[in-house]
């Protein structure tokens, strides 16, 4: 699991890569929390294009990022969800709490 980020005009994009499970989640959350503190963005995009696997630990991570953003008056959403991670998102029903945009079909 790798997290990289890019910032432009108040929008922070977090690029998740690899497999996101419980083993990876707490270190990822610490890194992401620091990045959010550094930029204090208005919007946070969780980009899942490079994510090959995610389980319910990823659902908790998305909800946590969303709460952190709300605390500072911003908002978060998911972009480029596809394949297995998208199926987990759909099964969890979190699209009722956070905007999920899916990857364009190739």
């Amino acid at each position: 699991m790798k997290v990289t980020s890019g910032y432009q005009d108040g929008k922070l994009t977090l690029y998740l890569q690899g497999e996101l499970d419980h083993h990876e989640a707490s270190a990822a959350l610490r890194r992401i929390g620091r990045t959010l503190d550094d930029y204090l963005p208005q919007d946070c995009v969780i980009d899942m294009d490079g994510l090959t696997f995610m389980d319910s630990s990823g659902i908790a991570l998305i909800l946590k990022i969303s709460r952190l953003m709300e605390e500072t008056g911003g908002r978060a959403w998911v972009a480029n969800a596809k394949n297995q991670p998208l199926k987990v998102i759909d099964a969890s029903g979190i699209d009722r709490m956070i905007k999920i945009s899916t990857a364009a079909k190739q």
Binding site: A25, S26, L29, D55, S56, S57, I59, A60, L63, K64, K87, V88, A91, S92
Partner: peptide
């Protein structure tokens, strides 16, 4: 706690 979402069994059941 908040590191968990409580969705594990639901996901196992649906997959």
């Amino acid at each position: 706690g908040e590191e968990r979402s409580g969705m594990g069994f639901t996901i196992m059941g649906s997959f």
